[in-house]
Design a protein around this nucleic acid. Structure first.
Lengths: 219, 219
DNA sequence: GAACGTGGAGAGTGATACTCTCCACTCTCT
DNA sequence: AGAGAGTGGAGAGTATCACTCTCCACGTTC
């Protein structure tokens, strides 16, 4: 398949595909002549993945490149792969350590994050991005006037445990070979995020309707 | 308080504050002379809220403006306010209806979203953003090779129901007046999102460690 | 009354994700 | 075999966004 086919099948403009090639998001096709190359279904699949990460989840092209690079070093070990995926991912809008952290996140918040993890009994890798990111998130909530206490967070965390269990079931089951495990890990973790947030919002609307008195006309 | 105080207390540069004023994110101060004005604590609080939405959650300045505008029309009715907040919020990276939807989201997905909502027994407003956004999210998952079936989503949705219940408890309780209910709804809904996603990721790591065999050294 | 701060507005900046333009070459159709 | 379209590659240009800078006439403070 040539680049125009790739473009036609994916809906991504040729120039954009070239751009992704240049940026290393997409591996080069196998060359057939000095300036000709062919692409295969892997390229198509990869391209769709890129578009999903970039346009659905809003990952930056750079972050996507890093993530895909980590994925390509995958050795089939689910636990390791998941670690890679989780580690390579920005959560909020912190475009790669914009500040030396020592100043932005006071030690007190870091300790609070540790305390939460300990209270939950979770085993999280010492150097996991999550610890710092969590501390930062807690710090920001406190800054804006809504400090979150450990007692408040624990019930939330318990529910996320069960979500995570569902996630891993998803990953473990469904041994259809056409998508490899690493890619499924990415999809399940990252692309499910907006779905979960949406479900939460709708559940809030529903819960609010229930509590507020059911007289509310759906109309 | 003058603009420099606002800047000093919030850490936001004066020029940026002026920019927010121009864009209508921040209401003008009360003028004391032809070119002098004073600001109060509300401005400071509002400014912190803006920064949280923009830099923590990555909301665009425009979306933030719309949200704040909706908030300022708040009448103290929690259910209504929550509706406003939820309605004014982008979830993914769809910067305000970039396509006429009829083409991008096939009717089949819309029906699937409806089916899910029905299966859950949720009461969601007919014209809720959520329906379309959910359909779009499902469509995108399917596009990328990981179609989500209703049976798969229901257990997730049940957990989000419980998260939503916690959210509303948070909102209902804590009758400390210094932050009004509308603002707390925004904070709880939006700023908790990254925290929840982080917790989910860490829970995944934990769950994966448990399942994968506990021999894994934390190191 | 001098130095500094202020509100307001327009222009400039830096980052990002494309998108356009060229070019020498290759493929495809007839 | 020859014409027209397509290709890989690379550099330059564009659009958007969130600031950020610069100016200016005027206030405020010491």
């Amino acid at each position: 398949m040539r680049i125009s086919d790739l473009s036609r099948l994916s809906g991504v403009p040729i120039t954009t595909i070239k751009y992704y090639l240049r940026e290393g998001l997409l591996p080069p096709g196998t060359p057939t002549a000095h300036n000709q190359a062919v692409y295969d279904d892997d390229h198509l699949r990869r391209l769709r993945l890129i578009r999903a990460l970039v346009s659905v989840r809003g990952l930056s092209v750079n972050a996507t490149a890093e993530l895909l690079e980590a994925l390509s070093r995958d050795d089939g070990d689910l636990h390791r792969t998941l670690g890679l995926v989780l580690g390579a991912l920005p959560v909020g809008e912190h475009p790669a350590g914009d500040q030396p952290a020592g100043d932005t996140v006071p030690r007190a918040r870091l300790e609070e994050a540790e305390k939460l993890i300990e209270a939950l009994g979770w085993r999280i890798h010492r150097r996991s991005e999550g610890r710092l990111a969590l501390a930062r998130a807690l710090y920001e909530m406190a800054e804006v006037g809504l400090p979150l206490r450990v007692e408040t967070l624990v019930p939330y965390a318990r529910l996320t445990e069960r979500i995570a269990a569902l996630d891993l079931d998803q990953l473990a089951g469904d041994e259809d070979d056409h998508i490899d495990i690493a890619e499924r890990a990415v999809l399940t973790t990252i692309l499910l995020e907006p779905v979960l947030l949406l479900l939460r919002r709708m559940a809030q609307e529903n819960e609010s309707a229930s509590r507020h008195g059911t007289g509310e006309e759906p109309r």
